[in-house]
Amino acid sequence: MSTQTLTLDSHKAGTPPGDLAIWFFIFAELLAFGIFFLSYAFARAHNVELFNESQQHLNRESGAINTVVLITSSYFVVRAVAAIREGLSRRCVHWLGAAIGLGGVFLVIKLFEFHAKFSAGISLSTNTFYMFYLSLTIFHFMHVILGMVILAAVMLKARRGGYSAEHHTGVETGASYWHMVDLLWIILFPLVYVIR
């Protein structure tokens, strides 16, 4: 193991960690969600009472718990990246497994929330607020699933010894995508559940 392999910035100086291609994908995703967030905000501006009234029926607790779950999951991914930078594959696998587990917790909580809404007869066509609430959160839900699939693929490769302190771009690439999923929820939660 060379000295250089254990330096903090294993990626090329000045560029973000992971494969550069994922960053173009991340910024494209951020652009799409950004437009979605602003569409929600301006639709609310024209239906303030409806949005405030409908928002009261959301389960703010599950939204907050899911924020904690995703933030913690993101932190576990940070630990996985740190582990592989030290060449500790097993530890990396464990942290990734824990992060994926929390991703599963997020999905289960969200499914309970969706079930409650659908059981109450709420759908995309109920009103403008629920159209945005359901489409935004379902769109994000799909991204959590994709992130978990990516992390699982990275974890399986790490378990087979496919990454090392010298070569771990794949771990950083998966990590970057997962952090984006977390970042999007950090904005979605106050926007949909809190701001009134």
């Binding site: 903090l8 000045g14 973000p16 984006m180 977390d182 904005i187």
Partner: peptide, 29 residues
């Protein structure tokens, strides 16, 4: 978490701009 603080100004500016535009847009709305 994403490690952008160790990258060049361009990458940090893109991310900060996105956050500012989205946050500022929500504030204006």
């Amino acid at each position: 978490f994403m490690g952008l603080r160790k990258t060049s100004l361009l990458w940090r500016a893109i991310m900060a701009s996105w956050l500012l535009i989205v946050g500022g847009g929500i504030a204006i709305a």
